[in-house]
Design a protein around this nucleic acid. Structure first.
Lengths: 241, 241
DNA sequence: GCGTCTATGTACGCTAGCGTGCCGACGCAT
DNA sequence: ATGCGTCGGCACGCTAGCGTACATAGACGC
């Protein structure tokens, strides 16, 4: 683990940028504090700001006509909220919900779009990130359909654990049920199973990750696949693909 | 319906381009004939060519580690195959399978990426298309999870019907089962129900659409939502968003 | 301490869809 | 015309997850 002071708390999408671009980015954005439960953008609404979480993370949720909701992606330190601006569209189809409170960098949407014109390296990197997101969407579609609640829960906890900087996650079964699109009772059952295996423990809205490796084993391969893809496309700055 | 000779058989993504860009595009690509069942790109492989179906259409399929497969998007006259090149990534995560044989325009991947640099209008339009695709992925994730086989089948038939130029679709239950990620017997049941309602008829690998409006009613709202989004983002050339 | 609220455990019947396997029917090739 | 392979109908028991409802048990304010 790199100590905090070596790489100042920042967003991974900003890693490895040329100094001028990094400076331009930092000059254009401002620090923001995201509050748990805050909705950064409603589905179909115009995006006012883009967010680059530093310390916080955001759930991206699709809502169907009939009211069903499902989390389809997550953005933490490794990602951003507002990718559709990269595609020249100012609205977001998904709902963005702050799921982990904390710090983020935020920038006015118009300014962001303008900034991209003068920051080719940043632009390029963000597009690659978008590629990763697209894959996660596709992967999630299949995962949600084929895999069982217990494995999906394990995957979800791992993804959250990666983005939260603590082993302690403030999550109720109720909330998890909405994210995974299942009943609360279904979560309770799956959580009990994971707890019985010693992978997590929990009480009243507080889940503790005890055994990451075990959780990975309990999760479907989708967790691992996601991470591999991210590393391949965005981790190694020298990779071509 | 616009007669064929008025708008020459072409791909909708090329509509409304400045003449120079259109000419540059046409000069760089070549006609191709897609054969039913052909795999244009394997998951994880490098994209050799991008395809713009004219008369044909392509299924985009995600494959999980454990072998499960699910169709997550479709590209016909309204779309293209190879969007990840727009993001600067030369590989495709999804499998592209020719599902409707016919004509397409095809271009070498490198040439395509190069062409985009000199065709800003085209580039912009394709990015907007990508936005639509992303939404369809998210929508499909939720649809696949929440909606029943019968409604999903109706949606799928409608999407196919839009892209095939005929009321007659060459499809076996077996194939549909793979696309929707369900058992063949599940398709048989759903198809029988749709047939009983007079919406389709079928025999031995040949499904006929009898009542489009009825099918729309039988489908989940996802079909309609998809179309609306496409129209809003790509249909009206004057829309800002 | 007491009431209240919220989170979790549990139970019951129900349904969609699964896995499997078999049969009949159609159609193509010999 | 015969035979074989493909396609579709069907049936069996099974399971995951649903909808609903109710009961306990921490947490928190007063």
């Amino acid at each position: 683990m790199t100590p905090r002071h070596a790489i100042p708390a920042a967003n991974q999408l900003l890693f490895g940028l040329p100094p001028t671009e990094h400076a331009a980015f930092m000059a254009a954005c401002e620090p923001a504090t995201l509050v748990f439960g805050e909705v950064l953008v409603e589905p179909g609404a115009v995006i006012e700001h883009v967010y680059f979480p530093v310390d916080s993370f955001i759930s991206l949720i699709v809502s169907l006509d009939d009211g069903d909701r499902l989390e389809v992606a997550m953005a933490g330190r490794e990602g951003m909220m507002g990718v559709s601006l990269l595609l020249g569209v100012r609205e977001s189809p998904l709902c963005a919900l702050v799921q982990g409170a904390g710090a983020a960098l935020r920038m006015d949407a118009a300014r962001f779009q303008h900034l991209l014109l003068s920051c080719p390296a940043l632009h390029k990197r963000l597009l690659r990130y978008l590629y990763v997101v697209m894959n996660q969407l596709a992967q999630t579609a299949a995962c949600t359909h084929f895999h069982q609640v217990e494995a999906r829960l394990a995957r979800w906890l791992l993804m959250t654990h990666d983005r939260a900087s603590s082993n302690n996650l403030q999550l109720t079964h109720e909330f998890l049920a909405v994210m995974l699109g299942v009943r609360r009772a279904g979560i309770t059952q799956a959580a009990m199973a994971l707890q019985a295996r010693g992978l997590i423990s929990y009480q009243r809205g507080n889940i503790t990750v005890l055994d990451r490796a075990g959780l990975i084993e309990a999760s479907c391969g989708c967790y691992h696949a996601d991470r591999l893809l991210y590393a391949r496309v965005l981790g190694d700055q020298h990779s071509g693909t």
